[in-house]
């Protein structure tokens, strides 16, 4: 058995890039993304799984990076907000968030976008209720969720080739 607090090397795919980094066994994916890989787009507002700011995609599922041991995502494909755009081309969700003002202070935005991405990857024509449900673990204090819900709907329509 390794002594408490041991480190080891983990291999991840982060936004499509293979990454290899040393992590301590008690480090969360959130800490590894922000502090080891310096991908600070993923935010934290509680570190206890209560606010949704740290939501990322792990093998396509929306997950809270503050509650994942980095050692347990060995080999997984991680997508963060930094991986949403294709080069300079924003993802339709990002465009819609900008156009509709769904990002005000912007602190919940990364988590919102990743939750929305997970939804649209699975359901290309969500109802308003389904959108609200998909975002129901992401706290936003600026928007009242209204423009965010609208933006996800607009992005979904654009992804379907409408509008």
């Amino acid at each position: 058995m390794s002594p408490p607090g041991s480190s080891r090397v983990v291999r991840l795919s982060v936004n499509g890039e293979p990454r290899e980094t040393i992590v301590a066994e008690n480090e969360t994916l959130l800490e590894v993304l922000r502090e080891r890989l310096r991908l600070t787009g993923t935010k934290h507002g509680c570190e206890l799984g209560e606010c949704g700011a740290c939501t990322v995609l792990v093998d396509g599922d929306q997950k809270l990076s503050c509650l994942l041991l980095a050692t347990e995502v060995e080999g997984a494909a991680i997508v963060t907000v930094e991986g949403l755009a294709s080069g300079p081309d924003l993802h339709p969700l990002q465009d819609a968030f900008m156009e509709l003002g769904a990002s005000q202070c912007g602190y919940c935005t990364a988590g919102m976008l990743m939750s929305a991405k997970a939804l649209l990857d699975e359901n290309d024509e969500p109802t308003e209720g389904e959108i609200r449900d998909a975002l129901s673990g992401n706290v936003c204090r600026c928007t009242g969720y209204a423009s965010i819900v609208d933006a996800v709907g607009v992005a979904a329509a654009r992804l379907r080739g409408e509008r």
Partner: peptide, 23 residues
């Protein structure tokens, strides 16, 4: 005009550097 905010791109791409992002 209904223009997006000037810092919109940074905010939706995770590029904005908030206080705790400073290292």
């Amino acid at each position: 005009k209904a223009l997006p905010r000037v810092d919109g791109v940074q905010k939706v791409t995770g590029a904005t550097i908030y206080a705790d992002d400073i290292e």
